[in-house]
């Protein structure tokens, strides 16, 4: 549905994007994950036609957005990072204005606005001015204003920045609902837990390059990030450590007389095998701590740094 081919963008001597390419399939939630300054907003602004790349092409449903920007804009909704609303207009007035820019007939727009206010849980506040809304409520209207023309693609640039957990969950529900209706969603964030919860596929971007792109399982494989088990035992012999290493596909990360830290491909499949093996040697297990590979470890493996560095 969306294809970026060899996109590069520089600002003077500063290279923002280096030859990035990826595809986004219809109906998926695509996450663009990276630290601040990685190139997420530049990528999003090129997709939503605000910026022109120095080189490369972008296609939406086979249409080149650089030569047919208006056609592509009609297929897209964009939720900006800022709360870009008119504070002195009511929620409904904002919706009618922003939706009206996409040439939706007024009667249809009213129906869409009512549905969307219901979706974001703000029907009861439709006639209140935006300036009276809390930050989280403004964020929800910010999303609502982008989907009045029922776009096929919704581009969301860090839509939960500064939002409290309750409103964040509400926003996640809205996104999942829209996706269930078939909307393709491009979601940028630097919150790993958001990307893990929402996204079908994730591209990890750092210093203007796509380091990896795929599902969570694919990213784990690409990055080599593995699950981790830490066992606390009554006593650990060198023979035990060697036997675990030799007889099973575990990697010993560290060991001490009381504990051993291991890496494996799949905790749920391998933990019982490990427990049986240890118990056969007569060692007593005092504690088992497991941690599955996550985006943080994937990111660390791929970039050599933590996401919030």
């Amino acid at each position: 549905m969306i294809e970026l081919k060899s996109i590069s963008k520089s600002y003077g001597n500063i290279v923002s994007l280096r030859d990035i390419s990826f595809k986004i399939h219809e109906g998926e939630i695509f996450g663009l994950l990276g630290p601040n300054g990685a190139g997420k907003s530049t990528t999003v602004n090129i997709i939503n036609t605000l910026l022109k790349p120095d080189s490369g092409h972008i296609y939406i449903d086979g249409i080149n957005i650089l030569s047919h920007p208006d056609e592509c804009k009609m297929m897209m909704g964009v939720v900006p990072q800022e709360i870009a609303l008119y504070d002195n207009l009511t929620a409904l007035e904002n919706l009618m204005f922003w939706g009206g820019l996409y040439n939706v007939p007024k009667a249809q727009l009213r129906i869409n606005a009512a549905d969307i206010l219901e979706l974001v849980g703000l029907s009861g506040r439709k006639n209140d001015r935006i300036k009276t809304f809390s930050g989280g409520m403004k964020r929800r209207i910010n999303i609502a204003c982008s989907i009045l023309h029922k776009p096929k693609i919704l581009v969301m640039d860090e839509p939960t920045a500064g939002v409290d957990p309750q409103n964040r969950n509400h926003i996640f529900d809205v996104i999942e609902n829209l996706n269930n209706e078939g909307m393709t969603i491009i979601y940028t964030t630097h919150y790993m837990e958001e990307a893990e919860r929402l996204c079908d596929t994730i591209a990890i971007i750092d210093t203007g390059s796509i380091r990896a792109h795929g599902t969570m399982d694919e990213l784990k494989k690409i990055s080599g990030a593995r699950d981790i088990i830490t066992l606390t035992l009554s006593g650990i012999s060198e023979e035990l450590v060697n036997s675990i290493r030799d007889e099973h596909s575990f990697t010993v990360l560290s060991s001490s007389p009381k504990s051993i830290k291991l890496e494996c491909d799949n905790i749920s499949d391998q933990v019982s095998t490990l427990v049986n093996h240890v118990e056969k040697t007569g060692a007593v297990i005092k504690n088992i701590n497991t941690r599955g590979a996550n985006l943080e470890s994937v990111f660390l493996k791929l970039t050599g740094k933590k996401l919030r560095d």
Binding site: N48, T49, L50, D70, K73, M74, M76, V78, P80, Q81, E82, I83, A84, L85, Y86, W98, L101, Y102, N103, C145
Partner: peptide, 11 residues
């Protein structure tokens, strides 16, 4: 406040 950019996202 970002509304100019939002206007530019539209057709």
């Amino acid at each position: 406040n970002g509304t100019i950019n939002r206007l530019l996202y539209s057709p």
